[in-house]
Design a protein around this nucleic acid. Structure first.
Length: 324
DNA sequence: AATATCCGCAACCGCTCCGAC
DNA sequence: CGTCGGAGCGGTTGCGGATAT
């Protein structure tokens, strides 16, 4: 038996709030504070679900909220934080005084995501789209391996099916999030399907079984042609599956990739974009390393991630400068 | 001017988290 | 330790205004 609903949905008003309702809620919360949200509507004389009241208050009525559009500085901060911690909207919003998680989320989905796409940057991984496609090529290599190893319906196996169903198509639209191109096993896949000693550019010729999608593809953007990545990313998923990698973009590694993997290794998790990673997991990890747990509020949580990210990137730059 | 399409935002839904018991 | 229930989060939906045809 599931949990009963928080309120009788058939008997409460839904949809847009009227000015009268806003006034009632505002008056009540101003005088009594929020307290137990399930009791607020009754005490405030509103025929609304407590959850709806809380949302209206936090997203619209709170007196400290900004209602003007986002500044370029705020946008930059959102992009940077999203790159570091993924879609933890509430955490990102706490870095932006007067903004709510809903504000940030909406702004990301309607403006910033498209802006990055237009710049040729994948908004999920924040990597160049060409690299994401390279990573997908690597993952397809995994699919040929894992199909034999396990029948578990993991995403990687589904992605490159020749007969994509609805689910497969939707996953293909946003592959990095669902496939997690920078997770451990994908790295293993990438390395297991390429010669250990080979340079990345030589991997192509050594691949015995290229991904199905790629081999059956027809449309290859000619070198030097104008190609709109944003249009590609927004295009029909079926069309997407017909796209073929330019071979010279088949290189697998770069420092950002390594950075992501190193960061994942650091926390023993499959990347910050992975759904299963909770704040607690990261905090626990940091706690084990001597970071005071009491100091790990949400801001500290973000700080810890940003600091660790900076450290890893700095270390990689150092390694890169000595290797090349 | 009428209609279609696009876009942004507010609100909802389902789920997890977390403290109380 | 397990259960309960409120709080909070992220994803998604749908409405309404703006713009294009």
């Amino acid at each position: 038996m599931g949990r009963p609903p928080c309120c009788d949905k058939s008997n409460v008003k839904r949809g847009l709030w009227t000015p009268e309702e806003d006034a009632k809620l505002l008056a009540y919360v101003s005088n009594h504070g929020t307290g137990n949200w399930t009791l607020v509507p009754k005490k405030a004389g509103l025929n609304r679900c407590g959850k709806s009241c809380r949302l209206r208050w936090t997203n619209y009525l709170r007196p400290d909220l900004k209602h003007h559009s986002f500044t370029p500085q705020e946008e930059d901060l959102i992009i940077n934080l999203h790159q570091a911690i993924g879609s933890r909207w509430s955490l990102i919003a706490r870095r932006l005084p007067g903004r709510t998680d809903n504000d940030v989320k909406n702004h990301w989905n309607t403006k910033l995501r498209k802006k990055l796409m237009k710049m040729g940057i994948d908004p999920v991984t924040h990597k160049p789209v060409s690299q994401v496609l390279s990573d997908l090529g690597s993952i397809s290599c995994l699919s040929t391996i894992t199909t034999d190893q396990t029948q578990a319906p993991n995403t990687t196996n589904l992605i490159f099916s020749n007969q994509p169903d609805q689910e497969v198509q939707s996953q293909f639209i946003k592959p990095p999030e669902n496939i997690n191109v920078h997770s451990h096993h994908n790295n293993e896949a990438a390395s297991s399907c390429s010669s250990p000693s080979s340079s990345s550019s030589s991997n192509i010729s050594q691949q015995s079984s290229p991904p199905q999608v790629i081999t059956t593809a027809a449309a290859v953007p000619p070198p030097g042609s104008s190609f709109d990545w944003s249009e590609f990313l927004l295009s029909d998923p079926v069309t997407c599956t017909e796209f073929q990698h330019p071979l010279n973009q088949y290189e697998v590694q770069n420092q950002i990739q390594v950075s992501n993997n190193a960061r994942d290794e650091e926390f023993g998790i499959g990347g910050y974009h992975e759904e299963s990673v909770t704040k607690r997991q990261v905090c626990d990890k940091l706690k084990c390393e001597g970071t005071s747990s009491s100091s790990l509020g949400d801001d500290s949580f973000v700080d810890a991630i940003l600091n660790r990210d900076s450290e890893i990137r700095a270390a990689l730059l150092l390694v890169g400068s000595t290797n090349y």
